[in-house]
């Protein structure tokens, strides 16, 4: 893609991404702050929590709960845009500090899970094309559908039951150990790998039915060359799309996985924020998840022209119908 056509394309996509982030923040704000009365006052006024009138007033003022909703929204989103994530109601600490504490563990978990997911998906996809037809391929093709029918918490519990309790490969009392991390990543990564594998297999099959695949085969290529150059390479674009979309799956799934494996991380932070109704934390974390999702997908979009030469001059070479 020439520079003249790439820059406007990138700028347009960036603007689009900002709009989506803004909307996602506002939507979360709407759900949390407007619909069922406002949760902060609910909590403060709950007699069980034992706040006095004098304590309540400054907090209400701090959150601007005495102002019109639109103004509250504006204040919240301005702060968010400036990187101020607010203060936890329960821990009385800045959300950003809590997030920074929790982030490394979750990044390690999600990164390992994505790696595991990619390796598994690739292995299953290769098996689906190269194994003997009736049994080998059949099994490889059923696996993704099967693992997509298993709740992720069940995968986690089975891994713990088998590999921690029966085989003793890791201890759940040390959730951040290397072995425990790998198994947690498996629990998180298996559903993601199944999604990627389904897309990959569908695309590999599609490529295998293309005329250029037949022509390359007639050229005398080996199966592994055919797979890499004429099946996998043309499938890269939909797979990158799927990987970018499954970032959301990883972020949402970390909630359950971290809870089951007893890890401290962003997911368990969300879980405790939900249980304690700590809405500033919840609002920030969910909005940040949306930001991550949007940015990853933006990166994927900007990558497409590299993966498919036909997209490089989409603007330049229009053809008549």
């Amino acid at each position: 893609m020439s520079r003249q056509s790439f820059l406007p394309f990138a700028a347009r996509r960036l603007g689009h991404a900002l709009v989506v982030i803004l909307l996602a923040y506002s939507f979360t704000f709407l759900i949390i702050s407007v619909l069922p009365g406002d949760p902060v006052s609910n909590m403060l006024l709950d007699p069980e929590n034992g706040f006095t009138e004098e304590e309540i007033a400054p907090i209400i003022a701090h959150y601007g709960l005495d102002r019109p909703v639109l103004e509250q929204w504006w204040r919240a989103i301005s702060r968010f845009a400036l990187g101020d994530l607010g203060i936890s109601l329960r821990a009385s600490r800045p959300v950003s500090a809590m997030l920074l504490e929790a982030l490394p563990s979750t990044l390690v978990l999600a990164g390992t899970a994505m790696l595991v997911a990619l390796l598994l998906a690739l292995a299953i996809a290769y098996a689906s094309q190269s194994l003997p037809r009736r049994w080998g391929q059949g099994v490889a093709r059923v696996l993704p559908a099967l693992s997509l029918s298993v709740p992720s918490f069940v995968i986690g519990l089975v891994l713990i039951q088998v590999f921690a309790f029966q085989l003793g490969l890791f201890r759940i009392t040390d959730p951040n150990g290397a072995a425990a991390t790998v198994f947690a990543a498996l629990a998180l990564g298996i559903p993601v790998s199944a999604q990627i594998a389904e897309v990959l297999i569908a695309n590999l099959d599609h490529e295998a039915g293309q005329e250029y695949f037949a022509v390359a085969r007639a050229r005398g290529l080996r199966l592994s060359q055919l797979f890499a150059r004429h099946q996998l390479r043309p499938s890269a674009l939909p797979v990158v799309t799927m990987i970018a979309v499954s970032i959301g799956e990883l972020l949402g799934g970390s909630l359950i996985t971290e809870t089951i494996f007893g890890r401290k991380g962003v997911g368990s932070l969300v879980q405790s924020a939900v249980v304690t109704q700590d809405f500033p934390v919840l609002q920030s974390l969910v909005s940040l998840a949306a930001v991550v999702f949007v940015l990853v997908n933006l990166a994927a979009d900007l990558l497409y022209p590299l993966l498919d030469p036909r997209l490089r001059r989409r603007a330049a070479a229009g053809r008549p119908a």
Binding site: V20, L23, A24, F27, G252, L255, V270, L285, V286
Partner: peptide, 24 residues
């Protein structure tokens, strides 16, 4: 289209979690 993009941007499970915790 933008609304759909927004709903897609919030990871499904988190969106459900937020709604449940707000509604009870």
């Amino acid at each position: 289209g933008r609304l759909i993009d927004m709903l897609l941007a919030i990871p499904n499970f988190l969106l459900a979690v937020v709604i449940v915790s707000a509604f009870g």
